[in-house]
């Protein structure tokens, strides 16, 4: 129970940040002609920002099922990486049904805060962590869908930046603490810009709603940072070995 409450406390800021972003999703969906309850249902069952926006655009355009599957798959592929990463972070003996429950809410922010925990993540902590964001995301969509006339397009646009600011608020404090995290962040951002703007390479960001570009940038940057750390580790080991040899001689 203590863990659950700690989870709620950790997740509550995500809930607050989700509301304005979900709000804009609700507005957009209703503008496209979707029923407000359908928009709310999509939000609750997907818990995915970019994937949902792309999905409803495809449905609105009457896209074939296979295109919907492929786009959803590619845009949300990063969740697979996160889920795999979480296998190393959750309590080792967690039973299957509990794993299936927490899988529902592996979102960018929930995943980031879960992996930044110092100890292994328990089922109680994770369910607490996901509870308020699920509510915020669903309820925010509901509000946006029913109150879509209340906000001017300018205000709606401005609220779109909230999601990115949450990302910034998560990564910058860690970059301050670790130079390698900072380096990885800069590398991932640069790669993502290259995949978007450099002619020829930018096809990567044009297919699948940008999903490939995100995955590729993140994997290369993380692999680079992990490799630098590995090299440093080996250097240190060698230095220790050499020092030992010297002291023996």
């Amino acid at each position: 129970m203590k863990e659950f409450i700690r989870g709620i406390k950790t997740g509550f800021p995500i809930c607050l940040g989700y509301i304005p972003v979900a709000f804009t999703f609700g507005i957009l969906a209703v503008k496209m002609g979707f029923d407000p309850m359908v928009a709310t249902f999509v939000a609750f069952t997907n818990m995915a920002s970019a994937g949902q926006f792309a999905g409803i655009r495809l449905i609105d355009g009457g896209a074939p099922y296979i295109e919907l599957v492929m786009t959803t798959l590619v845009i949300n592929l990063r969740y697979m990486l996160m889920s795999f990463s979480l296998t190393q972070k959750i309590a080792p003996k967690m039973p299957l049904y509990k794993r299936c429950i927490i899988a529902f809410c592996i979102t960018d922010e929930v995943f980031a805060l879960a992996s930044m925990q110092k100890q292994d993540v328990s089922f109680s902590f994770f369910t607490g962590l996901m509870a308020t964001p699920i509510f915020g995301w669903t309820f925010g969509t509901f509000l946006g869908a029913f109150a879509s006339g209340l906000l001017s397009p300018m205000l709606q646009g401005c609220m779109g930046i909230a999601l990115y600011c949450m990302f910034i608020a998560i990564i910058i404090p860690e970059a301050k603490k670790s130079r390698k995290v900072a380096l990885a962040i800069v590398a991932a951002s640069l790669l993502s810009c290259i995949f978007k703007y450099v002619p020829g390479i930018n096809v990567l960001s044009q297919v699948g709603g940008g999903g490939w570009a995100i995955i590729t940038s993140a994997v290369i940057a993380a692999a680079g940072a992990a490799s630098i750390k590995e090299i440093n580790r080996r250097k240190k080991r060698q230095q220790i070995l050499m020092a030992e040899e010297r002291s023996e001689a």
Binding site: M82, D108, S115, I168, E174, S189, C193, S217, A221, A225
Partner: peptide, 21 residues
């Protein structure tokens, strides 16, 4: 250890790549 480090950096890299540009 390399894989462990890789997974440590992944959340930050994914969020950074999504944010910029």
């Amino acid at each position: 250890l390399w894989v462990q480090d890789f997974f440590y950096y992944i959340p930050f890299c994914v969020l950074a790549a999504m944010t910029f540009p």
